[in-house]
């Protein structure tokens, strides 16, 4: 089994390295990106998508496929860590000796976390929703949301946070995020348009095709944020406790 995995990995890696030979040289002035592609996005993205920040419109609309599979890669990475650490945990359960629990709870850390975490979550929502107009978006907002939960886990302990946000919920929600993204794309397919062509939403929603692209991007960003939040938290929980879900750090 391991030999097969090694062969598959080597083949895929070789394929990818071979494919990089076909990419244009770094900073090549004659590559399509520097000749006409960037120009097109800079000049046309505002009138085509009504999103002032064209980084967001390129990321979530013109190259929506790429971002969808990026989200899926994050999802798969989280699941892989979960699967590996949970299995390893079952094998070496006896080898781990528990740390002595500290009796005194750290009041300073906990009060500071209580003050900061709501601000972080509010800011994260702002980053997600404001990605159209300023730097930000689903990935960044999701990371800040996840960091809020990780801060709680550091200041209190893992059990307290897991009681509020159960592991099952986290894993389900991370799938829901990917589902929101691909679902928004799939509805476009049902409405007789291309996959991830958000302007098709104008047929069932009370706004024009250009606003539909802007709103579609917002929906997609929300999906990305949910997945990134859940995977960040799941990664932290698994890595900090070695898959044991006890106090960990």
């Amino acid at each position: 089994m391991k030999a097969i995995a090694l062969i598959v990995t080597l083949l895929l890696g070789g394929l990818l390295i071979a494919a990089t030979a076909d990419l244009p040289d770094w900073g090549d002035p004659n590559s399509p990106a520097s000749v006409h592609v960037s120009q097109y996005y800079i000049e046309n993205s505002l009138e085509q998508t009504s999103v002032p920040n064209f980084v967001t419109s390129v990321l979530a609309d013109y190259r929506g496929y790429d971002t969808m599979f990026e989200t899926t890669v994050i999802f798969c990475a989280g699941l892989t860590v979960f699967a590996i650490l949970r299995r390893a945990h079952r094998r070496r359960q006896k080898a781990v000796n528990p740390r002595p629990e500290r009796e005194d709870k750290d009041l300073i850390l906990q009060s500071a976390a209580r003050m900061i975490v709501p601000m972080m979550q509010l800011f994260a929502l702002y980053v997600v929703a404001h990605g159209h107009h300023s730097p930000g978006g689903g990935f960044q907002g999701g990371v800040i949301l996840g960091a809020g939960f990780i801060l709680l886990a550091v200041a209190y302990d893992l059990k307290t946070v897991l009681a509020r946000l159960r592991e099952k919920t986290v894993l389900r929600l991370s799938a829901v995020g990917v589902l929101i993204y691909s679902g928004i794309g799939f509805v476009c397919l049902l409405l007789g348009s291309n996959f991830l062509n958000y302007s098709a939403w104008a047929r069932i929603m009370p706004f024009g095709p250009i606003e539909a692209r802007s709103h579609g991007m917002l929906g997609v960003e929300v999906g990305v944020a949910i997945t990134v939040l859940c995977i960040m938290f799941s990664l932290y929980v698994d890595l900090a406790s070695g898959g044991e879900m006890d106090e960990g750090l």
Binding site: R102, D106, I108, L109, A112, M115, I116, M119
Partner: peptide
């Protein structure tokens, strides 16, 4: 304001970890 809250707390946490 955020730095005023977060930075001393982080210092306290590092100091406490060192003491532990």
């Amino acid at each position: 304001v955020l730095i005023f809250i977060a930075s001393p707390t982080a210092t306290h946490a590092i100091m406490d970890a060192g003491y532990e």
